[in-house]
Design a protein around this nucleic acid. Structure first.
Ligand SMILES: [Mn+2]
Ligand SMILES: [Mn+2]
Ligand SMILES: [Mn+2]
Ligand SMILES: [Mn+2]
Lengths: 219, 219
DNA sequence: ACTAAATGTTAGAGTTACCTAATTTTATTT
DNA sequence: AAATAAAATTAGGTAACTCTAACATTTAGT
């Protein structure tokens, strides 16, 4: 069954909201926020998705994806993240420019296209934001992600993403030559202001603030 | 002004129909055929495009693109052909598989994407079907294209496209190792059945039928 | 338990892009 | 110049997706 852009966007929104909620479901207003519409539009769509068996919905209750719905949502996420990787790796888009275009590209319908793209990119595992790319059969690498600020002194870890994507933050990262994949060793945790003494590859050593370390995700 | 998929498809259809007509315009029924709708839908759309100044339309007369409309149409064609080239060159799609997916990709809205894609592909001049790719400012290489069947004996020419894109024909071409860019020398024109004696690169020599030669475009 | 606030739903309507059936205009024959 | 055929248009309607305003339900605060 061929879904519309709109249906796919809703499924993706419900998927990511459910993933954050500890009850595995999403609320009407949350969805409206996420897909930039008003709550009545969400209700209409939930009814439609429910008749298509993509979602289990009872009025006044939070929605849940069915396994069918989840499968579709994950494929959309896969496409989104593969396109982001393409834009970043092959077309030299910046970190913060890829999302908007991928938001459109994720709706192109072609099995073959996405499998060939995956192959062309060398089967990447993480997108430019460090988010895991689901595999063709829907499996997602879910290595637990820590804030850099939680890492013990003496440990070496690897950057897999960020919490903040403001351009101030991204520019600072660029200046430090820190990106996805960068290895960081935590040398010392400074009790006074919770800042960290760290070293990046090649022993280049600096102090970073707690605010910085809270926004860098590592494994 | 951001146009819809549908509006873009209509403009593209009117553009290519106008190019074929010697009066530089297109008829309602022709457009309906091309975009796979019914004539009343076309009339609706023509009225809309007319209020947007993309088309000059008077009822019961043939439509013409305004210069604005032509500009938009050419940009859509540019995107279509660049994406076809990407699919063919980078993702190893076959000649006859690229069109359908490009039909979707041509509607992605992003200036930057298309310029970067063009650069990534090395500013190609022809798409996988041998059709010219308009430049960023809308210029189109219009080297006159001849049928192979029109070429004089003794002349060497180069394949730039085909008239038929049936898979029977494409498979035959593949078997002969003939593709875009292949050089062909016409050795002899056989009066009896208008077939041609030709040689491909490396002196490999064969006879091809008139039907074949009518469907191979060369410069 | 009662009230107020927050959340969610229904009613009714607009837009885009289609459709079929009926009608009008233009083009082609005789 | 009629008559007929072809092409184009209008009328009226549907489906998807969105909205605002009004109403219903649930939740949280006292
Ligand atoms: Mn999207
Ligand atoms: Mn991402
Ligand atoms: Mn298209
Ligand atoms: Mn083409």
């Amino acid at each position: 069954m061929e879904l519309s852009h709109s249906e796919e966007n809703y499924l993706k929104a419900i998927y990511s909201l459910s993933a954050m909620s500890d009850t595995g479901d999403a609320a009407t207003n949350e969805i409206a926020d996420r897909v930039q519409t008003k709550p009545p539009s969400v209700v209409d769509m939930l009814k439609k998705l429910a008749t298509k068996k993509l979602v289990t919905y009872e009025k006044y209750k939070r929605v849940q994806l069915t396994s069918q719905g989840k499968k579709v949502a994950i494929q959309v996420v896969r496409k989104h993240r593969l396109w982001e990787t393409f834009l970043f790796e092959k077309l030299q888009f910046n970190w913060d420019e890829v999302h908007e275009v991928a938001e459109q590209l994720e709706h192109i319908h072609s099995e073959k296209l996405i499998e060939r793209l995956d192959q062309f990119l060398g089967h990447p595992v993480y997108d430019p934001h460090g988010d895991p790319i689901p595999s063709a059969n829907g499996e997602i690498k879910t290595a637990k992600r820590y804030k850099l600020s939680e890492i013990e002194a003496g440990t070496t870890c690897q950057v897999v993403g960020v919490n903040d994507s403001s351009s101030d933050f991204l520019m600072y990262l660029q200046q430090l030559s820190v990106g996805i994949g960068t290895k960081i060793k935590v040398l010392e945790r400074i009790a006074f202001d919770h800042s960290l003494m760290v070293s990046f590859k090649k022993g280049h050593q600096t102090v970073v603030s707690k605010k910085f370390a809270d926004n860098v995700l590592v494994t």
